[in-house]
Amino acid sequence: MASAQETALSAERQDIRNRWLLSAPALIIILLAAIGPLFIVLIYSFLAAGPYGDVEWKFSTDGWISVFLQRDIFDDTLSFADAHLAIFWRSVKLSIGTTLLTIVFGFPTAYFIATRPERTREMWLFLITIPFWTNLLIRTFAILQIIRNEGIINTLLIKAGFINQPIQILFTDTAIMIGMVYVYLPLMVLPLYASMEKLDFRLVEAGYDLYASRFAVLRRIIFPLVKPGVIAGSILVFIPSLGAYVTPSLLGGGKNMMLGNLIELQFGQGRNWPLGSAISITLMAIVMIALLAYVRNAGSSEVRHG
């Protein structure tokens, strides 16, 4: 009996060793390609800025201090870096907006696909992935052609007599939102579909049988069951939105920065690499917080499922 237990134990140990060995290549890649560079960014954030870009190998917290605090250019008083805060806030605001809009558009789309006959579902999913075939930059340029002052939307509206003057959509925050919603919509639809596909539609029927209204069925039955999909989709949309660079630069006209642009400024014309590194890490911290909130939420909803 005891020896059998020992064999079982050693088998288990062997199993664990095998698992480590098998995952070693992946772990090495993560270590070298993700954690390594990240570590360099972290070190850079604690160094002094070189006079013309780059860093000087002297310990300094100036980078970190100037993420949150700024010395007034004119009277030298220390205050909150409201320019940075404003840019942080714009990024968070636009990312939340994008996430909500992708849910609004993505939810019905995913529901539509999930309720098609099984044969045709694959075709619909395939259609959703078509935008991924084209480069992000090209898709953003396409959006630009549609919303510009002499673009399709404005031309149609003017021809139809609804407006006399083109509506300025391009180079506004609205343009950034339109672009980001378009770009990230598939990232919302796919996880939503994945959880809706598993949905037991007999529960929906049961709801109707018990005289639940359509809205009540959506709110009390469907939504709670696909919540993990909503959360996964939100994370997939929110994180890249927060760091978006191409879309705000092209569609927003570069007048108002987002975090990606602010970071780029520090490594480019601003020549303050430590500050750029510190802002990058702050951005990652925000993402981490969002992810932790996700893990908690997903965990608790899992329990309710059981």
């Binding site: 250019i73 007048k255 108002n256 920065m257 602010l262 400024l265 014309q269 601003g270 020549r271 303050n272």
Partner: peptide, 17 residues
């Protein structure tokens, strides 16, 4: 000079906030 450049970057960031 780097000091002047730093001043300009601050004005620039404030302009684009």
């Amino acid at each position: 000079s780097p000091e002047t450049q730093a001043l300009y970057t601050k004005i620039w960031t404030e302009l684009q906030k």
